[in-house]
Design a protein around this nucleic acid. Structure first.
Lengths: 220, 220
DNA sequence: ACAGCCATGTAAGTCGTTACATGATTGC
DNA sequence: GCAATCATGTAACGACTTACATGGCTGT
């Protein structure tokens, strides 16, 4: 149920249209929460019907109009209420970890590819997160500038920036942990294969195969 | 779409009823994937209709029966196919990170409580994951013993154990990263408050409050 | 007999994705 | 004029949760 709060939090910085909000979900906030426009538009109308946001008609070109959403004071209240409520951390499902649990059904090569894939993904993500952390630190994003401009004190400005930077630094640290886990995984596969090669066959050795699917030319 | 594969993977170890499967989701596999019985029972019937599992009637007490599910060879094929398919890592949504992004709307005390809550949750989880990693290493879980007993070679046994242990060691590492992130978060709040206390008020200083909600006796 | 676990289901609702649809504006 | 992007929607479906429902077995 965090979509609504993500929307409220963005709108707290400045009013915008559903379209602009959905762009934010592809950038800044999008690194911690995402939503498609098909989910955003209905949610905005729901928030409006609940009185948490209001719409203003904005001219667009010569004849068209668009709708700009902004927070009502009830919306601000709800945002504050949510922040002051403790989050119950959720055990996430991890398809990657699930699959690694059963890598013995695949070849050594495939196992290595899984780990390398995992490492590459998080290496790319790490750059994105690090870049965004830097952008927040130097206040070079437009939303951050708006927020800082609206803040009432230096302490408020310090907090606005510090919390956001901390989030992205946390994601960078998480990426590092995932990369190092995946690299140890590759090493593990090498060790397993070396031990197996010393005795049995040096081909892939799935724990159980019905028809040899595991050996179909997937050598990396 | 990993539920079906989690089910197939567990059934590969040994046949069991839907009830037993749902117990597994509360333990072992449950640390990487979870599902309620209300999702498991229909999925099992779907798998049966697709020919990936079959059912055997098993006597239960004097008159009742229960259904034991086991893999068909098509089920084994599907399991192998899935393992040999690269996983596309998903960017997860994180409500915890989302909220931390906007902690400036709350009091310093609340911010600290968020981080401590996060650290405590992962500290507890860490113990659970570490315990399970140890159990897998010493092959003291019943499913692991079944798997090892069914394996055809020492190399297969080594792989079965090693991959699973690696998964849980990865979760322990992840827990460590989360705990240390949360602890740095507490430190950050202390610093922000100290800096604010040196100039402005020493009370909570939300960036924007409509009605002072943030100050309602939530001091930890 | 009664509690607690074993065992299996359905229904309603939320959240999210994918795909289908439409039309206006802006810049080249 | 045309492409890209702005802007807003709906429909169908899939995954998952919560709640409701039922009944049999086991040990005390």
């Amino acid at each position: 149920m965090s979509l609504r709060h993500a929307l409220l939090a963005i709108l707290e910085a400045r009013s915008m249209t559903g379209y602009e909000l959905s762009k934010q979900f592809g950038a800044s906030v999008g690194f911690v929460w995402r939503a498609k426009h098909s989910q955003i538009y209905p949610e905005l109308r729901k928030l409006e019907s609940e009185g948490l946001v209001r719409t203003t008609e904005v001219q667009r070109g010569k004849s068209a109009v668009k709708w700009s959403y902004s927070l009502t004071s009830e919306g601000v209240d709800e945002l504050n209420r949510w922040v002051n409520e403790l989050e119950i951390p959720q055990l996430e499902r991890s398809a990657a970890h699930l699959k690694v649990t059963y890598l013995e059904y695949g070849s050594y090569d495939m196992a290595r590819r899984h780990f390398r894939n995992h490492a590459e993904y998080f290496a790319a993500q790490r750059i994105v997160w690090q870049t965004h952390a830097d952008a927040l630190r130097s206040a070079s994003t437009s939303l951050m500038q708006t927020r800082l401009g609206r803040a009432e004190s230096d302490e408020a400005r310090a907090a606005i920036r510090a919390y956001k930077v901390h989030v992205y630094e946390g994601l960078v640290a998480r990426a590092d942990a995932e990369i190092s886990w995946a690299e140890r995984g590759v090493q593990l596969v090498d060790d397993l294969q070396a031990a197996a090669g010393a005795s049995g066959s040096d081909l892939a050795s799935p724990a159980r195969t019905a028809n040899g699917w595991a050996e179909t030319g997937l050598t990396g």
